[in-house]
Amino acid sequence: MKTLFASDRKFALWSFNASHRQLILRSNPDRIARTVTRVEVYFGHVEFMSVRPSYSSLRISEADQGEITEIAARIPDGLRPGGTYLLGRDLRSFVISAKPAWREAECDFDAPSLFDFPA
């Protein structure tokens, strides 16, 4: 299992656009945790997901073949194309999608997403 991203910050499921199959997990600035930046993790071409509404920390890793086989057995229509990415240390939370990307920047709470692509 190869770790792609890890953070001890709190993350929340911020948005999912079904028509574009895009998922964003966000960690906003937090005065108590003394963070001043926003971090967003973007998953494009989402084929299937099993995610929680929030995470006290976030670790994204590529699933190995054994984990992929176990996840595929739980998906009603079988495994779809795309990478399988675990969100944590177990198989309860995962996304099947293109490879995730992340960005971090200082911005206001109500500023557009760091992945807000102009039309």
Results as ranks from 00 to 15, higher is better:
66 G>W: 02
49 M>K: 15
22 Q>D: 08
54 S>C: 02
43 F>S: 05
46 V>H: 08
69 T>M: 11
48 F>G: 05
50 S>W: 00
56 S>A: 10
61 S>D: 05
72 A>N: 11
25 L>T: 05
25 L>P: 02
59 R>A: 09
34 R>H: 14
60 I>C: 06
78 G>E: 09
27 S>F: 00
57 S>I: 00
83 G>P: 09
27 S>M: 02
75 I>N: 08
50 S>K: 12
42 Y>W: 13
35 T>S: 13
72 A>G: 11
84 T>M: 13
41 V>K: 00
30 D>R: 01
69 T>K: 15
48 F>N: 14
27 S>Q: 03
58 L>C: 03
80 R>G: 07
74 R>I: 04
48 F>P: 00
68 I>M: 13
36 V>F: 12
58 L>K: 03
36 V>R: 13
33 A>D: 14
40 E>G: 01
51 V>D: 03
61 S>L: 03
34 R>W: 08
56 S>W: 05
68 I>V: 15
21 R>M: 04
62 E>A: 15
80 R>S: 14
78 G>S: 08
69 T>H: 14
46 V>S: 10
26 R>W: 01
44 G>H: 09
26 R>Q: 11
82 G>F: 07
50 S>L: 03
72 A>W: 09
33 A>H: 08
61 S>C: 05
39 V>G: 00
74 R>W: 06
40 E>K: 02
79 L>W: 06
64 D>K: 07
84 T>C: 15
48 F>V: 12
76 P>R: 11
79 L>K: 14
21 R>V: 00
53 P>A: 05
50 S>C: 12
51 V>S: 04
37 T>K: 11
48 F>I: 08
49 M>S: 10
28 N>I: 02
85 Y>D: 07
61 S>H: 04
38 R>S: 13
76 P>S: 10
78 G>H: 07
30 D>G: 01
70 E>D: 14
